[in-house]
Write a protein that binds this DNA or RNA. Structure first.
Lengths: 237, 237
DNA sequence: TGACTTTTCTGACGAACCGTCAATAATGTT
DNA sequence: AACATTATTGACGGTTCGTCAGAAAAGTCA
């Protein structure tokens, strides 16, 4: 009873690992159930016993990716002290996630294509929304702490979550553009990641988030922090 | 000679119009060459005479969409006076583009999926890059004017284009998240568009872009401006 | 006009993929 | 060992893609 079940769970992970490898190396269209079955040396029906369709596989991978990022958020928030530094650390984690764990970011983006999201199961959709909610809570929590500590005063009519949404958009938007716009350099954007860090820093200044620091100071300790985040990110899988 | 050629060109536009309608109503997977042929009442081969594959159709539509936005940028820049207001007007145009012309924004996003971009023809890719470059030039031009007029001082090491990239990321990111995240409201983001306008305004303040205005003032004249942009946007097609 | 070349159009075709399901094999139970 | 349950298989029908030889239409010229 239990051995067989363990075998099946084991195989499920193998399928996901193989699927992720194919997705990263050759893209979404290269992922087919026939191929998955062939490379796993199982019949197609067996794969369908695990996942009702291709989209569900991508959704499962995306959920794992989102969870990885959530963990990175938790780590980042722990590694830094002071509300503003903790917020900066979150941004740093996002940068690392998108570059160092780019296979995760890529899968996460696939989920944003309506076709995949809509065909995935409702239970998976719920889990994904919960994971997003928890990530948001981590960051919104930092903002609330900042308010409580007197480091930041939110304008009236802007919730902590809406405040976070700005930084989320800035960061997500930049990574999406970087990964999908083939020639940013050609249109004059030499160092997109650094530029966005500068914008994030400026945006915090705009909101008067204390304590103020020069951008150079911020960059200096961010570099150290990044090492810590990267280490954690790679070791837990 | 010429009549037949005109007929063919005419038909190409009909194909694109039909394709866009299907894409908007039923999404990317619903668009098939067989269906296109059937609804056009032509054989499939004829459709393939116009476009070598499905991706090329989407790319053609995306190019049209990008050009529409470029025109909106030009209009927006004309309708406002003063560098900061002109920049704000561009942001306003983006909002209108993503909401009012959401079918265009949706197609533009499809292009960002690697599969489509890679299968589209090189000539089309070049055209798209040119169009993006011209859009960027419009906005970077506003930034340079602002510098020349003394309204804005860019930090050293940040080019005008990299400066624009921040606003681009903020705006694009928010619209992408809004259109793909099913339940922003559930995670505490009631009014995402207004939030991002606030962030954009704050970011400009952070860079010290003159003349300063309260957010309420900005919102007031932006509402008027929006009407003008919407009018233009809808009338030229 | 009629015989011709050239261009455009057609739809049957092979290949790839999806998801199903009756039949078969493996495993568990008594 | 006989039976029940669960897991696995791969052939199948259906859909889409992109091709291409041959049919139809348009253009050319005596």
């Amino acid at each position: 009873m239990t051995r067989k079940q363990r075998e099946i769970q084991e195989r499920e992970q193998q399928i996901l690992a193989l699927a992720r490898a194919i997705l990263v190396r050759e893209g979404y269209q290269a992922l087919s159930m026939d191929r998955l079955a062939a490379e796993m040396e199982y019949a197609k029906g067996t794969i369908y016993n695990h996942f009702p369709n291709k989209e569900e596989i991508v959704a499962a991978l995306a959920l794992k990716s989102l969870e990885k990022r959530r963990k990175m958020f938790e780590r980042a928030a722990l590694l830094a002290q002071g509300s503003r530094k903790r917020m900066t650390a979150i941004g740093c984690a996002c940068d690392i996630y998108a570059s160092e764990c780019c296979e995760h970011f890529a899968v996460e983006q696939m989920l944003r294509i309506s076709a995949i999201w809509e065909k995935s199961s409702q239970t998976r959709q719920k889990l994904i929304q919960q994971c997003e909610f928890r990530s948001m809570s981590i960051v919104a929590g930092i903002v609330r702490d900042a308010q409580a500590a007197g480091d930041l005063k939110l304008p009236v009519g802007l919730s902590a979550e809406e405040f976070v949404f700005g930084f989320w958009s800035l960061t997500y938007g930049s990574h999406a553009l970087i990964s999908s716009s083939p020639s940013l350099a050609e249109i004059g954007i030499e160092n997109p990641v650094r530029s966005i860090r500068y914008h994030g820093w400026t945006l915090m200044n705009g909101f008067g988030w204390q304590p103020l620091e020069t951008f150079e100071q911020t960059e200096a300790w961010t570099a150290e922090l990044a090492e810590g985040i990267v280490k954690h990110a790679h070791e837990d899988e």
